[in-house]
Amino acid sequence: MKLKTVGIVCAIIVSLTFYFVFSVYFLPDSYQSLKKPIPEPYLSKISFSESDIQYGSSFDINITGTNLGDASDIQIISIGFPNLTSLDDRVKITSYDFRQSPFFIEIGDDVGINYGDTSESILAQYPSIEAYSRPWKSNETYQISLSVTPDKPGKFVVFVKSVGLPHTSEKSHLPKDGFLDYQNEFVKVYNVFVNTP
C-alpha cells in the first residue's frame, strides 16, 4: 500500500516536472526559433489614364497588387495626395475587390510610422486612401480604381506604396528605396500636369 502511494507520488512529480520543463522552456524556445512570415508586396499595375489634364477634369488611377511572399496578416496599398487638403469630392473609389473597405485618411488622423515596426503613430499631413486585405495570403491579387479631380492647376503629385504586415524584412515594403514620406516610408512618386483653361 505504501509502495503504491510512493509510486503515485513519484509519477506525479515526474509528470509535473516533464510538463513544466516542456511548456516553460523547451517548447517556447522552439517556437521562438520558428521562421517569421515574410510578406512581399508587389504592384503589378499602376496606371494613370492621363498624364496631362485640363483644370476641372478628372483622371483615373488603377492599381493592382500581389503578395509574392508569405501570407501577411495585413497588406496595404496606400495612395497619397500631398496636394489635396481633403478627399471630399476630389477622390472617388470607382471599384475595388479587397477583403475590407478602404480607409479614407484625412489630415490630422492618427497613422502608424516606420512600417508598423513600433506602436508609435503620427498625425497625417495630407489625405490618402489605404486599401487593404486582412489577411492577404500568398499570391493573392487585389485591385483598386480611383477617379481623381485635382483642386488647382499645376503639378499634381500622387504617392503610391505597398506594405505587408508584419513587416519582418526589407522585402515587406514597396518601393525599396526612393522618396521618404512623412511616415518614414518609401513611396513611388507620380505626377499629373493640370493645365489652366
Binding site: L27, Q32, A71, D73, I74
Partner: peptide, 10 residues
C-alpha cells in the same frame, strides 16, 4: 500580429 502570437507568447 496574429502570425507573431507564438513568438511573443514564448
Amino acid at each position: 500580429f496574429p502570425s507573431l502570437i507564438a513568438h511573443v507568447y514564448s
